Amino acid sequence: MARILVVDDDPAVRQLLADVLGMNGHEVRTAAEGLAAVDAVKDFSPNCIVLDVMMPGMDGYGVLKNVRSQHGDPVPVIMLTAAADPDSAARAWADGVDYFLAKPFSADQLLELVGGMFGSVR
């Protein structure tokens, strides 16, 4: 399965995502904010990043730009946001996001996206 980095400043959301993905056979690491996410990308070398948009300090757009500026194969990024307005989505697409998921979303929606990329153990 895949190495997935989950980045969200909400501890409950972060833990839920880590649990759901972990129970589906993926190796999961978490980060609570943008700068920690940038470090985790270097240390963990994830195959996929599940990234919240609104976080204190470096937001998800900043993390996405940092990830996209790195050399090598692009890492798929799934952005999560409670602000699912057209401008946010357009900005995410322009910055190179692979998938954009509006909160609230179901665990099944996330697993379907990840399963499409890496397969599922369900």
Rank of each mutant, 00 (worst) to 15 (best):
G60V: 01
D85Q: 06
D39Y: 07
L113E: 05
G72V: 08
R91L: 15
R122V: 09
E27P: 00
N24Y: 01
P46F: 15
L80R: 03
D10F: 03
S69R: 14
L111M: 14
R68Y: 13
K103Y: 01
E27M: 10
V121G: 10
L51G: 02
M117W: 02
F105C: 15
D10V: 06
E27L: 05
S106A: 11
M117Y: 03
E33V: 07
V77E: 03
V97T: 14
K65V: 15
G34C: 11
C48H: 05
G72F: 10
K65D: 08
N66T: 04
V75P: 01
H71C: 13
Q70C: 14
A18P: 00
V53I: 10
V67D: 03
G96D: 03
W93F: 14
D19C: 11
M117L: 15
M54V: 09
A107D: 06
L101M: 12
L51T: 01
G116R: 04
G57D: 08
N66K: 06
T81R: 06
G60H: 00
A31F: 12
V41P: 00
G60L: 02
N47R: 09
D108N: 10
A107V: 07
N24K: 04
P76S: 11
N47Q: 15
D39W: 05
D98S: 14
A82K: 04
P74N: 13
S69K: 14
D8S: 06
A102H: 01
Q15V: 07
D95T: 09
V38F: 13
A94R: 11
F44D: 04
F105K: 04
L16M: 12
V53K: 00
L35D: 14
R122W: 09
D9A: 03
A18E: 04
L80N: 01
P46D: 12
F44G: 08
S88T: 12
D73P: 01
P74V: 11
R29F: 12
V7W: 01
A31R: 01
D98M: 07
D52Y: 00
G57P: 00
K42N: 02
S88N: 13
D52V: 00
P56D: 10
A94H: 10
S88M: 15
H71T: 04
V6K: 04
A12L: 08
F44E: 03
L64A: 13
R91C: 11
I4Q: 05
P76Y: 04
Q109L: 14
H26N: 05
D8A: 08
P104S: 06
V13G: 01
P86Q: 11
F100M: 09
E33F: 06
S69H: 08
F44T: 02
P86N: 04
D85N: 10
W93R: 15
L35K: 06
A82S: 13
C48T: 04
S45P: 00
P74H: 12
G62V: 10
M54E: 03
P86K: 08
K65F: 03
V77D: 00
G25P: 00
F100K: 02
P76W: 14
V41I: 15
S120R: 12
G96E: 08
R14T: 00
V6R: 02
G115Q: 05
V20D: 03
S106K: 10
L110C: 05
D43M: 12
K103I: 06
P46T: 14
P56R: 05
G34K: 02
A37C: 09
R3T: 05
P46R: 11
L35V: 13
Q15E: 09
A2L: 12
